[in-house]
Write a protein that binds this DNA or RNA. Structure first.
Length: 558
RNA sequence: UGCCCUAUGGUGUAGUGGUAGCACGUCAGCCUUUGGAGCUGUAAGCCCUGGUUCGAACCCAGGUAGGGCAGCCA
């Protein structure tokens, strides 16, 4: 085990470094990522994954993947598989440390029996309502259940009958006997087991009782020898209970440490709300490219590297905060700028006719695949008399700061020729249908011998060679997320413009061989990838992953 | 009005008694065959009030503000 000397400092890593220095744990560091298989992972989980696996890697330890599958009413194998896929995709490896809380059901049951034998747990036969009433309130102490003083023998017998399925759901629970007057509600005789006569996705119908989170989680950590159990802030009040189980049962002591969960601007992170979006068809599914789920981000074209970088950049602390999505986009652009192959695609086309270019001539230009990485080579791009350019790259009456195409103005077509606008053709509605230009044969390749300055460079495609495609542009899912995940109608804050579908787009022919899982840069536009669900070889569908930074829009506004 | 936690530029995060730093974002300039990328610079911060100290973001006291907790959910 080693201590990284210049690792990013955060309070958790500081604690772990101190623990290692003081020899608190005799094993190497063991952490765990403990999802409940009841939904898809989102970027908030990525923060926890990067922390837990990251810490383990840095200190030469290991990180377990453990499914917290103690509630058969909400869990499913579908989620187990998606979670494993997502963790792997993010680049982490649990090796052979894949565990399930349900693997420990026998041991947990035995622990419960020990608690009963020690007089520290009892079977309560109050109804759920009565248990709530007896619990007291935030400001008033609770009262002991009339069943609190059952004999150990009775408790043992009853608990065994619960296990055997001799009682109906809700008739009894097993509770820890701690303190009904504790100011910490979690210590007012918390429930340990409830009866659920429901098949479990892994244990089938052998169990009729299932352990509660606090009991199962604390002891699962202990069973696995976890040294540092990292969880989110809402479990802070549970730590005394977490520790109580370990103390009274005298088992391996893991240390729970809480950190703030991730909140991201203009989106929501709670599984419940994400599920609402899916079930109420506000999005196409858990992997809708607008979703903050790992599967949504993947389909959108995000890379694991970008997400890991983001999780590193946001840091770890205890204050409750909201990170601007600009930081996520920054991490994405940083990664994609270095790796994405460049291509040209026109999203909102207008036709350009080069009136002095031969009718049937077709030339091919070599275009650089990535100016940031010349080893990625070049590709051929066909050029002909009729082209498409972006409609917004032409302005009939431009401002002085507009460097693109306008009547009488000369621009460069990326990797091709200089062209000058000589005429504008409109339809009866005044819509521009064609822009007539001349090209300068001496500017072949995009530069001229006379060295004259041409400030604007436009992307383009050859009309007869281009492939027609659909491009989906995404915006924030929500207009405003103040108040976070609580209160207010979620749907009131949905951004009605979160999806724009452009169906008349043209992309360069090299994209006929574009492959799934690659995010391209459409030059001057942004990053795009093939949609993994809806794109077919005959009808390409691209998702805009993120736009390029656009300083023109600022100039234009001012 | 119980218990627990938190408070550093617009945002996120370092700094644990000795000149408050980094990143994102902002703005300006340079550069550019992507108005991308890159480079340079700018503005902007210790919640408040006391106390201890030669010296406090840091220690102490008291406030204020925000968050969490009353599932047989996790």
């Amino acid at each position: 085990m080693s201590i990284p000397d210049n690792s990013a400092s955060d309070f958790i890593r500081n604690i772990i470094s101190n623990d290692i220095n003081s020899g608190k744990f005799d094993s190497s560091i063991i952490t765990r990522f403990p999802p409940e298989p009841n939904g898809y992972l989102h970027i908030g989980h990525a923060k926890s994954i990067c922390l837990n696996f990251g810490v383990a890697n840095e200190y030469g330890g290991i990180c377990h993947l453990r499914f917290d599958d103690t509630n058969p009413t909400r869990e499913d194998v579908e989620y187990v598989e998606s979670i494993k896929t997502d963790v792997k995709w993010l680049g982490y490896d649990w090796q052979d440390h894949l565990y399930f809380a349900s693997d420990y059901f026998d041991q947990l049951y035995d622990f419960a029996v020990v608690l009963i034998e020690k007089g520290l747990a009892y079977v309560d036969s109050l109804s759920a309502d009565d248990i709530r009433r007896y619990r007291g309130t935030l400001t008033e102490p609770g009262q002991d259940s009339p069943y609190r003083d059952r004999s150990i023998e009775d408790n043992l017998a009853l608990f065994e009958q619960m296990k055997k399925g001799q009682f109906e759901d809700g008739t009894h629970v097993l509770r820890a006997k701690i303190d009904m007057a504790s100011p910490n509600l979690n210590l007012r005789d918390p429930t340990l087991y409830r009866i659920r006569k429901m098949p479990h996705h892994r244990t089938g119908d052998i169990w009729k009782i299932y352990p509660m989170y606090d009991f199962a989680h604390s002891l699962s950590d202990s069973i696995e020898g976890v040294t540092h159990s990292l969880c989110t802030l809402e479990f802070e009040d549970h730590r005394p209970l977490y520790d109580w189980f370990l103390d009274v049962l005298q088992v391996h002591r893991s240390q729970q440490i809480e950190f703030a969960r991730l909140n991201l601007s203009n989106t929501v992170m709670s599984k419940r709300m994400l599920r609402d979006l899916v079930e109420n068809r506000h999005v196409s599914g858990w992997d809708d490219p607008r979703m903050p789920t790992i599967s949504g981000l993947r389909r959108r074209g995000y890379t694991p590297e970008a997400i890991r970088m983001f999780c590193h950049e946001i840091g770890i602390a205890k204050r409750d905060t909201e990170v601007e999505s600009a930081l996520l986009e920054h991490c994405l652009r940083t990664n994609l700028n270095l790796t994405a192959p460049r291509v040209m695609g026109v999203i909102d086309p207008v036709k350009v006719v080069l009136i002095n270019y031969p009718e049937d001539l077709v030339e091919e230009f070599d275009a650089v695949n990535n100016p940031e990485d010349l080893s990625m080579g070049t590709r051929k791009v066909p050029f002909s008399r009729e082209l498409f350019i972006e409609r917004e790259d032409f302005m009939e009456t431009p401002s002085s700061k507009f460097f693109r195409l306008a009547p009488g103005k000369e621009v460069r077509l990326r990797a091709a020729y200089y062209i000058t606008c000589v005429d504008v053709i409109k339809n009866v509605d005044g819509l521009i249908t064609e822009i007539h230009c001349t090209y300068d044969p001496d500017s072949r390749g995009g530069s001229s011998l006379d060295g004259r300055r041409v400030r604007g460079t436009l992307h383009w495609v050859s009309a007869k060679h281009a492939i027609k495609a659909e491009i989906r542009l995404y915006g924030d899912l929500f207009v405003d997320t103040t108040d976070g995940d609580n209160g207010g109608l979620l749907t009131d804050r949905l951004n009605p413009h979160s999806l724009t579908v452009m169906t008349e787009c043209y992309v360069e022919p090299s994209l006929a061989e574009s492959s799934q899982g690659v995010t391209y840069q459409f030059e001057r536009q942004g990053y795009f990838c093939l949609d993994s669900v809806d794109s077919t070889p005959g009808q390409l569908v691209f998702n805009r992953t993120v736009s390029l930074r656009d300083s023109w829009s600022k100039v234009n506004k001012s």
